[in-house]
Design a binder for these strands. Structure first.
Length: 221
DNA sequence: AAGTATACCAACCGCGAGCGC
DNA sequence: GGCGCTCGCGGTTGGTATACT
């Protein structure tokens, strides 16, 4: 995609920029033999004039099996929005909940689509508030955590169109007992699911996100 | 048709955590 | 404890594609 010569930078000894089909093939073959670890040595053994980091990135974001590309579905988008509300810019955690999607892809999708969408929603929300302001009852004073939670719920409802049942506002949701790191917790969520079962999985996740707060507490995210 | 602006996304960079020596 | 190495993460860059004027 990007000519090697144009992506400047420090190390002139190694290739930079777009990967060629041949490089991809070499990398995949090396990983088949040596495994997806020790990226520096994988790069060397594959005969690639690339740094280990670059090889890892290429594998993780492009060559890995079961990668889904393009066309983020409405369901996936909804899930990204909600997870982002809960987790912030922790793209790898969010990606971990979306089978076949990479953190880089979700980050790009967020920056190019969703962040704008949200800004637009917030703007029209403000306008609506201004228009209806005089008839509103005086707002109860909230602690900062209350207001954060309120904002979180409000944005969530606005951006996804799904109302959050958690109206108490003093507690946060939580996720931690099911880890997001692709280890044991993932088994709880995804064990036995193939990539084809993604939609089913997403439905499950959506229900999970709507669960009553009594199931979870947030403090140790 | 040509020039310019904007959107998209692959790839890079810097940083910090974890681990072994 | 200190050092070096590897890995993973999030932010950023910049080339290409597309839309707009």
């Amino acid at each position: 995609m990007v000519p090697l010569s144009t992506r400047s930078r420090k190390n002139k000894e190694v290739n930079r920029g777009s990967w060629t089909a041949e490089e991809d093939q070499r990398l995949a073959q090396a990983i088949e033999v040596y495994g997806a670890r020790k990226w520096k040595s994988v790069a060397t053994k594959a005969g690639l004039n690339r740094c280990g980091k670059s090889c890892r990135l290429r594998w993780m974001n492009y060559l890995r099996p079961n990668i889904k590309r393009g066309n983020i579905s409405d369901q996936e988008e909804d899930l990204i929005l909600r997870l982002h509300k809960l987790l912030g810019n922790r793209w790898s955690l969010i990606a971990g909940r979306l089978p076949g999607r990479t953190d880089n892809e979700i980050k790009n999708y967020w920056n190019s689509h969703l962040s704008k969408k949200i800004k637009h929603n917030e703007r029209s929300q403000k306008q609506n508030r201004l228009l209806s302001a005089p008839s509103n009852p005086p707002a109860k004073e909230l602690s900062s955590s209350d207001s954060q939670n309120a904002e979180l719920r409000e944005n969530n409802a606005v951006s996804t169109g799904i109302e959050d049942n958690n109206s108490k506002g003093e507690e946060n949701y939580f996720f931690k007992s099911m880890s997001f790191d692709g280890s044991s917790g993932d088994e709880f969520l995804y064990d036995g699911l193939s990539a084809d079962e993604g939609p089913l999985n997403l439905m499950w996740m959506n229900r999970f996100l709507e669960m009553d707060e009594s199931w979870f507490t947030l403090h140790d995210i």
